[in-house]
Design a protein around this nucleic acid. Structure first.
Lengths: 342, 342
DNA sequence: CGTTAGCACTCTAATATGCCGAGTGCTAAC
DNA sequence: GTTAGCACTCGGCATATTAGAGTGCTAACG
């Protein structure tokens, strides 16, 4: 299934030419731009062969060639040069991300914003799930006579709060007792283990205090549930409408897809190693057959923590998009890691 | 500026006919549908007069009539029958809202969802703002070596948190000092008064501590900003793409508008009494010249608490939309009131 | 004076026609 | 294997034609 070197060059030139212009690429254009040493007829022969083999297709007999899905795939896997981004871009991304480096959520929100800005497509990110997280500390802050806030600080640096109401008047002594009891009990525990049955047994074990615990424990449990699930943020939806080769209909389908967190989550969780590129039908979703998706993950302390992705048209600038995406994921991961470390 | 009764009938019929069909309405169509007692020529005369007076316009000489902005306005103000919604709709709305009556945010989120569903346009809502709120207390919770969380407790019972990072290692003594200093300073203060210049003078007054204060003060300020501003939720953006008379370009502009919370906020805060309808240019925004907006508010304990709105094309079904909107706002207000009371 | 019938007129949308040119595939020569 | 040459294809654009919907105007009517 290998191609001769020149055919690879032709394929690469067609893909990049088509990505750049949006117009089917003809043999003469290629000759002028790239292959002054061979004639257009030779290129025509090569293109004909690439068409037979399924890497290119023609919109109609007298038009130039357009990459097929298979052509894009060959390009992405074997022809695309993964060269450096320009320092202007990397600096820009870094600058924007550092500005909002206060919480993981905001870093990822900003990541999608800056990505959609520099790539011109839509961007998605999922915040770190608390799957492997443990309880670092629990704190309580009184907010009213009978209301207080549980603050759950996770080993990952994530902080979740939950307001709760008690049916007794709260005193600082009571909060102190809760604090001591729960910290000695929960510190270091995996979030996933704080479940309904677990808090029931805990409550029971508190003897005379048991009466006062339920609302407190439920608050902590809900905070930990919140921390467990990863949030999804989307930016750049409006970019989809400006994509030149996406019909209104297809754009509507893509936007509908992006407005369903459930759909997005199912797409992001198809975790491969490294960066995955799904082209057209490879997305496996009817509503994304005219779209391509690039998914990568960011790491915290060397562990995959969450995903960042781009959603655009099949004719997107894979080289640039992959570059920006991976760079942003890298920076975002580092920033979140710093946040956690401190 | 009054019209004869028949001309009003003609105007009403044109508006409703055009809203229903999307096609310019001709004299014969009107005669067949509504005015079997007068001839089409008479209607033509009336339409010609309404055109001269600016209530109708013609896409071109040989086409039927289409309502002008002024025509829509006259219709909305004087001709539209504000009759009851069908019980099927009201029951449906009520059922959906009651399902998610746990927090004000969720009630309003659901309101926009159900509204965009039943009206086929986009919907916006703002949560109650903290305008009249004061600072009750400020608390700090350490979350890491160099990170902490400011907890702002408002007189209305609203609680906002903000994580921040310091460029020094945080000790519990430091937090205690912040706590004392800021509580004596801020307790009872209106949220609106915690501004950039204010915190600068405060920071300056702290003498040798001044170096350590900025990040803390900024966190408190941002928390109070959060508490002050009402959140905005949007649903049904994808509906905009299905609006038949909105060009892709106009749809993109509307979606861009909807993705900017700031823009939305400025639109919602043009508070009139009761329900306001802005048709086309009346929105006062270039990007919404092809759109219409209907804004109403919901009340808690008889006080205006926030806004709910619809955004659609100029040719929207004002009667149905206004009905659904007002009904939903009513129910949402009641549900939130119940929540606050408890 | 308001209403009506009749009719010529206007303009769009849909369909047909012809032409240009980009780009191809094929063949024969190198 | 490569190249030049050439006939051929087909979409896109501009132009012409037609059908039909709807109008405005005029003259007649009660």
């Amino acid at each position: 299934m290998d191609l001769t070197q020149r055919k690879e060059q032709v394929l690469k030139a067609v893909v990049e030419g088509y990505i750049a212009s949006g117009e089917p690429v003809g043999s003469k254009t290629l000759q002028n731009d790239l292959f002054s040493d061979v004639s257009s007829a030779t290129i025509r022969n090569d293109m004909a062969d690439l068409t037979v083999k399924g890497y290119l297709s023609q919109p109609h007999t007298s038009a130039g060639r357009v990459p097929s899905q298979r052509g894009y795939r060959y390009y992405v896997e074997r022809l695309m040069s993964r060269n450096k981004l320009s320092p202007r871009i990397t600096e820009y991304i870094e600058e924007k991300l550092i500005q909002s480096a206060d919480t993981p959520e905001n870093i990822l929100k900003k990541s999608t914003q800056v990505l959609s800005e520099v790539t011109g497509v839509a961007s998605i990110a999922s915040t770190p799930s608390g799957e492997r997280a443990r309880v670092h500390k629990v704190r309580f802050v009184q907010t009213g006579r009978q209301t207080a806030m549980a603050v759950l600080i996770c080993s990952t640096g994530m902080v979740k709060t939950k307001l709760f109401r008690c049916d007794f008047v709260i005193t600082s002594e009571a909060l102190n007792i809760f604090d001591k009891a729960l910290n000695s009990l929960l510190s270091g525990m995996e979030l996933a283990r704080i479940t309904q049955p677990f808090i029931q047994t805990v409550a029971a074990s508190f003897g005379e205090m048991a009466l006062y615990m339920p609302s407190v424990l439920i608050a902590v449990m809900e905070a930990s549930k919140e921390a467990l699930k990863s949030e999804i943020t989307v930016s750049g939806q409006t970019n989809i409408l400006s994509l030149p080769d996406i019909s209104v209909n297809a754009a509507a389908q893509m936007l509908r897809f992006l407005s369903s967190k459930r759909e997005i989550a199912s797409l992001l969780c198809e975790k491969p190693n490294g960066t995955a590129v799904y082209i057209g039908e490879e997305t496996g979703r009817q509503e994304l057959y005219q779209s391509s998706v690039i998914i990568t993950h960011y790491e915290i302390s060397g562990q995959t923590a969450g995903e960042i992705a781009l959603l655009g048209s099949v004719r997107m600038d894979y080289k640039n998009c992959i570059g920006c995406l991976e760079y942003t994921a890298d920076v975002a991961g580092q920033l979140i890691e710093q946040l956690v470390a401190s």
